[in-house]
Amino acid sequence: MSIELNHTIVCASDRDASAAFLAGILGLEVDPVTGPFAPIRLANGVTLDYLQVDEVTSQHYAFLVGDTEFDAAMARIETAGIAYWADPFHSTPGEINHLHGGRGVYFADPDGHNLELLTRA
């Protein structure tokens, strides 16, 4: 049997708003609420299960995307006026990176999770 990541819980102060935020950037839908979770299903079957909590500790989530998906997500980020950076420490604002022969960008969700889109791993 191979080992695969099936799901992870993403803590949020507003479960539905945070799930909708990321789904909107990625061009995905939020699946129907299941118990306390608002899930976003990724192409590889992994779900991000958003859970509403009182206190959120910032985490990092990186998404490997194709060039077309990157362009679409960047357009959504820029249209929404969301700040973005070329690096994980947010020291290079308004730029993307070109690591590994691809493109990458970092931005924060409403709870401060450090989100990354990259086209080459």
Rank of each mutant, 00 (worst) to 15 (best):
V10C: 00
G104K: 02
L117R: 01
E95A: 15
L115Q: 07
A23T: 05
R76V: 00
G104E: 09
R120Y: 02
V56S: 10
V33M: 14
N97T: 04
L48I: 10
L5V: 01
Q52D: 02
D71L: 00
I25Y: 06
A12G: 12
L115S: 02
P88W: 00
G24L: 08
H60V: 08
A75K: 09
F63L: 01
A73N: 09
P93A: 15
G45C: 14
D109Y: 03
G24H: 04
Y61A: 04
P110W: 06
A72C: 04
L117M: 06
A86N: 07
A86Y: 00
L117N: 00
I9W: 12
T8R: 13
E78F: 13
Y50F: 15
G102N: 05
L22E: 04
E69C: 11
T92H: 05
G24Y: 07
A75R: 01
T8N: 02
S91K: 13
A23E: 04
T119F: 06
R41F: 10
E95R: 06
A121L: 15
H98P: 07
D111F: 11
A83E: 08
P110C: 04
S91T: 00
P32R: 07
E69W: 03
A17S: 15
D49H: 08
G104P: 05
A62N: 08
P110V: 00
A38Y: 04
G112A: 06
S13V: 09
T57Y: 13
E116Y: 05
F89E: 15
P88Y: 03
V30I: 04
E55M: 15
Y61V: 13
E69T: 15
A108V: 02
Q59P: 10
V56N: 05
I96S: 01
E69Y: 09
I3E: 08
P88T: 04
A83C: 03
S2N: 13
L5Q: 13
A12C: 00
F70Q: 01
G27I: 12
H7F: 13
G94P: 10
D109N: 09
R76M: 10
P93H: 14
I9K: 06
I3P: 02
F21K: 06
N114K: 06
I25E: 08
T57H: 01
L48A: 10
A12M: 05
E29K: 14
A72H: 12
N114S: 09
S58T: 06
